[in-house]
Design a protein around this nucleic acid. Sequence first.
DNA 1: GGGGAGAGATGCCGC
DNA 2: GCGGCATTTCTCCCC
Lengths: 241, 241
Amino acid sequence: MVSIEDIEQAIKERRTVIFSSRCTIQYEGRAKTHLEEGDRIFIIKPDSTLLVHQVTGSSPVNYMKPTTVHKIVKDGEVAYLKSENIRQKEHLRAELRQIHFLETPMLKDEAKIQLAGNEKDMSDFLYANPEMVEPGFTPLSREEHTKYGFIDVFGYDTNGVLTIIECKRYNADFSAVDQLRRYVEKIKSSKGIDQVRGIMASPAITSNAKTMLENWGFTWKKIEPPKKLTKSKNQKGLGDF
Amino acid sequence: MVSIEDIEQAIKERRTVIFSSRCTIQYEGRAKTHLEEGDRIFIIKPDSTLLVHQVTGSSPVNYMKPTTVHKIVKDGEVAYLKSENIRQKEHLRAELRQIHFLETPMLKDEAKIQLAGNEKDMSDFLYANPEMVEPGFTPLSREEHTKYGFIDVFGYDTNGVLTIIECKRYNADFSAVDQLRRYVEKIKSSKGIDQVRGIMASPAITSNAKTMLENWGFTWKKIEPPKKLTKSKNQKGLGDF
DNA sequence: GGGGAGAGATGCCGC
DNA sequence: GCGGCATTTCTCCCC
């Protein structure tokens, strides 16, 4: 049988604490939440991250960020997990009514995930393969920082017209078009030139966003994000999945 | 000692499966990832959501959405968790090298979280208290749907000028200002009128976004999002935290 | 620490 | 299903 004192001790030792409990939860900070009684999974990590998961869905129902202080408080028959983040003015209180299990493993993990196929890979790919944008395109720079944001790819088209490319690894939407428009306007005004082209590079675009894009005189180029991991000696392909 | 067969059985029974294992992980789908050996926490929920957590941070390092099929596959001495989502063309493979613990609780939870202080609460509050926007403001509607997005609050100012309010519960940034501009332009063109005001209502705004806002002739109104939970009989305040 | 923007975003609601 | 958008977004990077 798990006792509340076991959880208390594990938190004090800053172990990875994983338990399940029937509970109610209240949170107040950036918003205010209330969760009625039910069984949930709690994870308190060594960096003091707290996650509370219900039995469905990817996102935690409640959570606290690192730099939170966690305490077990007993008030007569009732036990609480009280988590407080002074700096962020957030606190959470869970009334723990029945503990189902507790695990406090010592976990060793130095690895960092390697990821391929993000927007950076896409702009790198277009910079290295400018003919994919259009024949004669000459890239000048990547991640050009302007006061109105930073531009993915920047260059000249075959006619020598300054061209801004905004990459999206997913369906481009209104806000992607807005972003491109903001950059084009900023470059026009800061460089004092009249003609700047805008190209949206993405695997897809919503029909409304495409209409808006064309209304602003911009064009869409269908580009798939590349998916190649940097080679490393221990790395295996997924081909044999 | 936990055996791989115990995990296999728990997955088949569609229980909530929580275990820790030294492992390597590879994923391919929307992107491609590789994670070298380390100890991680695995959660497989009854809705087939998979979460893999490292010892730091709020976000899972790898995950699969509901409608994924999970299988334990043994290949000689080596055991894998293979998770495949056909519809989303995603798959994940974890080589499980040492299981530290396994828990397979039956969890009952019908509760849904109640949340106060979101953007909807903010626009409701402004609709009900238009003097908070400015004296003489007369709201017309909330969540007006336009082809270019939906408008939070819509009304007339004291001079009878059509006014659009965009609410943000956090620091308003460039994209919030972009959004407001998109709505104002859309209303101008669809109603064929020249003068439409735009107001950004938020607790804070980045300095650059404020400059851009003012350049476009819009104004910022500092408004805090309200934090009041709807009363319910079982609900208790957080005053005694 | 603030600003800016991506994310294998997730989740919600509306059509 | 797609579209549009908020999120206690989270995370990363750069200034």
